[in-house]
Amino acid sequence: MSDPAIIQPITDTPQRRAILRRLRRRPSVKGSLIALLIIVVTGLLLPSLALQNPYDLSSFSVMDSRLPPGAESFDGQVFLLGTDQQGRDMLSAILYGMRVSLMVGLISTAVALVIGICVGLTAAVLGGRIETLLMRIVDFILGFPTILVALVMLAMIGRGVDKVIFAIVVVQWANYARIMRSTALSERRKEYVEAAFNLGYSRPRVMFRHIMPNSLNAVLVVATVQIASAITLEATLSFLGVGVPVTEPSLGLLVASGFDYLMSGDYWISFYPGVALLLLIFSLNLVGDRLRTALDPKRS
C-alpha cells in the first residue's frame, strides 16, 4: 500500500542520551559527579592506595596516637590528616570508612527500592483488601520516627554492617512503596495498560513489563536522594554506638571516636571524617536533584 502517510517520524533523538547530556552540562553536577567518581574509585582501589589497613591492628602503633595532620611517625610515614587515639592514620580510616558508608547506603537503598517497588506495584494493580493492608503497613512504618525504629531494632539484633543494612531497609522501603503505588495508579489508568490486558497479557507481565518501566522515574530520583539519607542514618547510628562494629569504623563512628578529644584541641579526628561525610552526601544530593530536573519531560 503506497500511502501519502509515510512521513518521517517527527523526532529522531534517543531520549537517554539527551538526559545524560542535560545532566553533564551543569557545572555543579559535573563537580559532584567527579567527586562521586573519585569516592567510588578510591573505595574500590583502597587496599593498594591507603597508607595502612585500619582494620589490621598490627599495621599501626599506639606510639603514633593522636598526632596532628602532617606529622611524621616513628618509621617516617607522614600522616596527612593526623592519627586517632589508637595511632590509626586518619586518611586511611576515612577512605575505608567511606567505603563502608557507601556500601551500606547503596545496598540498603537497592534492597529497600526493590521491596518498595514490588509492594507499591502490587498494591496499585491488585487493589482492594490487599492494597488496603499493604498501605496500612506502609503508613504504620512511616508513622514512627526513622531513627527511633532503627535504634530499637539494632538494640535488639546487635551491631554489624549487615544488621545496619537490614535496619535501614526496614525503615526505608515504605517510602518507595508509597511513591510507587501512586505513580503506578496513574499509569494503570492509561490506555496502553488497557490495551495490554486486552491483548491477553498476564497480570504479572502487565505489571512488570508495562506499568513498572513507566512508573520508575519518580522512585529512582527519590532513591538517589535516599542513598544520602541512608548514609546519614548509618552515620548517626554508628555515632550513637549501635551501628557498625568498632573494628570496622565507618565515617559516623570515626566522628564519634574523635568526639571525646574535640574539646582538648585534637579536632582532626572528628573534623576530617565529618568533612568527608559532608562531601559524600552533598554530591549525592546534588546529583539526585539534578537528575529529577533532567528527567522532568516538561523541561526538555
Partner: peptide
C-alpha cells in the same frame, strides 16, 4: 476464552496514551 480475547480487539481514542512509551 483466548479466542474471544484475541478475536475482539480495541482501537483506542488517544494515540498518545495507547502505546507503551518505553
Amino acid at each position: 476464552l483466548r479466542d474471544f480475547t484475541l478475536d475482539v480487539q480495541m482501537i483506542f481514542q488517544d494515540p498518545y496514551a495507547s502505546l507503551n512509551p518505553r
